[in-house]
Amino acid sequence: MRQGPIPGAHGRVRPLTLLGDPHLHTPCTEVTDFGPELSPLVEDLFTTMYAAQGVGLAANQVGVPFRVFVFDCPDDDDVRHLGHVVNPRLVETDGVVIRGPEGCLSLPGLEAGTERYDHAVVEGVTTTGDPITIHGTGFFARCLQHECDHVEGTVYADRVKGWRHRRLMRQAARASWRR
């Protein structure tokens, strides 16, 4: 899967929405207008993701309630996966469930052991409406599941249970970005 930033275009860094912002817990809206505004949004998502040193970013993480996300993420074999998905649907998760460290640009500096499948398949379209199917394994599968959660109005902290969740919420409450 080799799609990525749109050649010749340059995005701008947008402010990130942080834990507590209602955008993060509201399911995003389907994109129905594939007009000229969509490509600059994708460029802005890439630019913002790179500036924050992330591997994935959903539109609601910059306050835009559309079902769009970008990624530039390695899998466990260190193969780089670069692209975007409009109207993503997580259509398959299988394999082994692994509890691994997971972070989020909307909870900067924090992470918690989060359970994810080690294989995921996402279907959607590109900014031009062309259908795409993305298969991910290992860390990239985690990334795909994480970003699909975002467009559904879920953050990884919602998946963390028990003492891990309590610890993460205490850390978030004390985080400098919460002040």
Rank of each mutant, 00 (worst) to 15 (best):
R2F: 11
A9M: 13
P15F: 03
L16F: 13
G20K: 11
D21P: 02
L24C: 14
H25L: 05
T29G: 00
D33I: 05
P40V: 07
F46Q: 04
M49I: 04
M49Y: 00
Y50N: 04
A52R: 02
Q53N: 15
V55Q: 11
L57W: 10
A58K: 05
N60C: 09
V62P: 09
V62K: 08
V64C: 09
R67M: 05
F69A: 02
F71S: 04
D76K: 12
D78M: 10
H84D: 11
V85Q: 03
V85K: 05
R89E: 14
V96C: 01
V96P: 01
I98R: 12
C104A: 06
L107D: 07
T114R: 14
D118A: 01
D118N: 14
H119R: 15
A120I: 07
V122E: 12
G124D: 01
V125F: 01
T126R: 14
T127E: 13
G129L: 02
I134M: 07
G136E: 12
G136P: 10
F139D: 03
F140T: 08
Q145S: 06
H146I: 08
D149T: 05
V155G: 10
D158Y: 04
R159P: 05
R159C: 10
M169Y: 05
R170G: 00
A173R: 15
A173G: 11
